[in-house]
């Protein structure tokens, strides 16, 4: 298998604050062709910034200081503007968290999708409308012909997210990055959208980097899971191993506070005592130490390195033992 995405040692810094305010701090992450990788972690752990950095869409306040991001084998950080624009949408594209605000309110759905097809030469002005309908039908937009002519405000959140997915898929990217695509939607719609994403993966064969804080979603969707904390990956592995036998105390904490019947979707992963650290607040040692039930002296002194044990990979001095 080939890696469509291979991030190594990524560090991104928040400009204007103290020099060590890293929102991404030594992150390694790979996604193979056709694979669904879930990136999980509490709010503020840097998931969105990781996603944005892949297509160089970081906000102006944040800039990358170290590392490489290989997308389809090429380093996006070494690309000139033209190449980068060409890569956006064709190699990888993003579905954002907020369907309410991520589409232009003054443009019809058709124009927004057609624009993408046109700039990448995937359609002409004459063929674009037909192609847009096809895409909307692909994401099972009901009444696609009529919806295409409508504006985002005419669509419900779920339908907007479908339009957003159609847009992201327009140029057949090899990697679809979905940044909490269902967080803003209600439960039944969430299930439909997730099912749609899996379906599309099976039909189109693209890889998906699914960002979520919902471990229930992870179990249903992902092949592999990477757990993110304070701007770095603290544990990753195949979904079954990771969910059944988490090694890192943070993963363990996330899992044990998952409601048995995860019925209430509004209940976020806030049950681990304490708060995640602010960027720049960690000087040394394990970033999870202040909240970790297993921490001891060495944890606050030395940051643990990534350790591999079979299929599991974790950064911890005192991991939970494999069963």
């Amino acid at each position: 298998m080939n890696a469509i995405l291979d991030i190594k040692g990524l560090r991104a810094c928040l400009r204007g604050r103290s020099e060590n305010a890293y929102v991404i701090d030594g992150l390694d992450l790979t996604v193979q062709e056709g694979e669904v990788v879930a990136l999980v972690g509490e709010s503020g752990s840097g998931k969105s910034m990781t996603a944005f950095s892949i297509l160089q869409l970081l906000p102006p306040a944040i800039h990358i200081t170290d590392g490489t991001i290989l997308l389809g084998g090429h380093d996006v950080m070494k690309m000139d503007v033209r190449t980068l624009r060409q890569v956006r949408g064709t190699q990888a594209s993003i579905v954002f968290q907020e369907p309410m605000t991520s589409l232009n309110p003054l443009m019809t759905v058709e124009r927004q999708i057609a624009e993408m097809l046109l700039i990448h030469g995937k359609a002409t002005r004459r063929t674009a409308p037909g192609k847009v309908i096809e895409l909307l039908e692909l994401v099972r937009m009901p009444d696609a012909k009529r919806r295409a002519k409508q504006y985002p405000h005419n669509l419900s959140g779920g339908l907007r997210q479908r339009a957003m997915i159609a847009l992201a898929l327009a140029c057949e990217p090899r990697l679809l990055i979905a940044d909490e695509p269902t967080t803003a939607l209600d439960v039944t719609i969430q299930q439909q959208i997730l099912k749609l994403l899996l379906d599309l993966r099976d039909r189109l064969g693209m890889a998906i980097l699914l960002i979520t804080h919902d471990l229930g979603v992870v179990a249903e969707m992902a092949d592999r899971v990477a757990v993110m904390y304070a701007g770095r990956i603290v544990e990753h592995g195949p979904v079954v191993e990771l969910l059944e036998a988490p090694r890192h105390p943070y993963t363990h904490g996330l899992l044990s506070c998952l409601p048995a019947e995860h019925a209430d979707p509004d209940e976020r992963l806030t049950e681990i005592p304490g708060l995640p650290p602010q960027p720049g607040s960690i000087r040394q040692g394990c970033p999870f130490a202040p909240r970790c039930p297993r921490s001891d002296a060495i944890c606050t002194e030395v940051e643990p390195a990534m350790t591999s044990d079979g299929a599991s990979h974790y950064k911890c001095h005192h991991p939970w033992t494999a069963p």
Binding site: R88, G89, T90, N104, E115
Partner: peptide, 18 residues
């Protein structure tokens, strides 16, 4: 310029002028 749909536009591969 800071709104989400502008990031969407950028993620499509549009140039800064467009």
């Amino acid at each position: 310029g800071e709104q989400d749909f502008v990031t969407t536009a950028r993620s499509k591969g549009l140039g800064e002028n467009a």
